[in-house]
Amino acid sequence: MRDLSGDPAAMSALAHPVRLALLELLGRDGPLTATAAGERLGQSPGNMSWHLRILARHHFVVEAEGGIGRRRPWMLTASGQRLDPEQGSEEERAAADALLSTVVERTFGQLRAWLASRRAAPSSWQRAAAVSQWTLYLTPAETAQVRDTIYQLLAQFGDRVEDPSRRPEGAMPVNAFVSMHPQALPPDKAQP
């Protein structure tokens, strides 16, 4: 897991839906050439090559072994990214806001696609998938504790992105989106 906090240039580079899709594709399918990635994402090889070079410049991907010329496969450098959007300079916060907005739009688009097609999925996946909403009364420390517990639980499966041999039979890429925030601050607690 790569921490993007303190690197606004990397956050800005990643705040593009095609680049997010490309990282997701590389995590799912392993090393790919720009041509193969373009075919799967409906993009031209030239466009994929350009996006891959930007991702490489910011250390999200590297060239995998065994490539020659235009047949160079690319692979991920980390199984995922995280950031603290509230820390750092104004530039860092602006870059984090742009990245988070792109991630949320992409995530909700994928959720909408799942909801629209879920009845065509095998019943085992229909039963396993979940969309839930909870209201919890927590302190900031408790919220951080719940968040950290969820992160630790999810991290147990992170090596399956980097090492496909660790994926059990029947495993599919599954999106996990966790959002924890106060519903609204009371007027006397809101900051200007």
Results as ranks from 00 to 15, higher is better:
P168Y: 01
A116Y: 03
M75N: 04
L111A: 13
S124Q: 03
S132I: 08
V61P: 08
V161M: 04
G158D: 15
E142M: 09
T77R: 13
V161K: 02
G158N: 14
A176T: 05
S117W: 09
G80L: 10
R119S: 09
R160F: 03
L153T: 13
N175G: 05
Q81A: 11
L138D: 06
H59F: 02
R57D: 10
R71P: 04
R82H: 06
I150G: 08
V146P: 05
Q81I: 08
R147P: 06
L100D: 03
A176G: 03
A130D: 11
V103D: 04
G46R: 11
E65W: 06
F108A: 09
D84G: 02
L111I: 15
A95Q: 07
T135D: 05
A121V: 07
D159S: 09
A121G: 01
D148W: 06
P140L: 04
F60P: 00
P85G: 09
G109M: 15
R93G: 07
P73Q: 04
S49W: 13
R167D: 00
I68S: 13
S117R: 13
E90P: 06
L99F: 00
S49H: 15
T149E: 01
S101I: 06
Y137H: 11
H58Y: 06
I54V: 11
Y151A: 11
Q152S: 11
Q126I: 08
I54M: 02
L136P: 01
A64G: 05
L100P: 05
S49V: 12
L83Q: 01
M172I: 13
D148Q: 12
T143H: 10
R82I: 00
M75A: 14
V174C: 00
G42I: 15
W74Y: 12
S123E: 12
S101Q: 13
R118S: 08
P168G: 01
I68T: 15
T107R: 12
A128E: 12
L111K: 10
V103C: 07
A78E: 10
Q152R: 13
W125N: 10
G109A: 14
D163I: 07
V146M: 13
T139E: 13
G67R: 02
E65L: 10
A129I: 12
Q87L: 10
R167W: 01
F157D: 04
V161H: 03
R166S: 06
S44K: 10
V61C: 08
V174E: 00
G42Y: 14
A98V: 03
F108W: 09
P45H: 05
T143W: 06
L111M: 14
L52W: 02
W74A: 05
Y137L: 10
T149K: 00
V104Y: 10
L99C: 00
M172W: 07
W74L: 04
D159T: 11
A120F: 03
A94E: 08
R127L: 12
D84W: 09
E65G: 12
A113F: 05
L55P: 07
F108L: 14
Y151I: 11
D97A: 15
P173Q: 02
A95L: 05
P122G: 14
V104P: 02
A144Q: 10
A129Q: 14
H58F: 03
A144W: 03
G69A: 09
T139L: 11
R71G: 11
H58L: 00
A56I: 02
S79Y: 03
E169W: 00
G67T: 02
Q133I: 13
R119W: 07
V131M: 11
R167G: 00
R57L: 04
T143V: 09
R71W: 08
E86P: 01
W74Q: 04
L100A: 08
V161D: 03
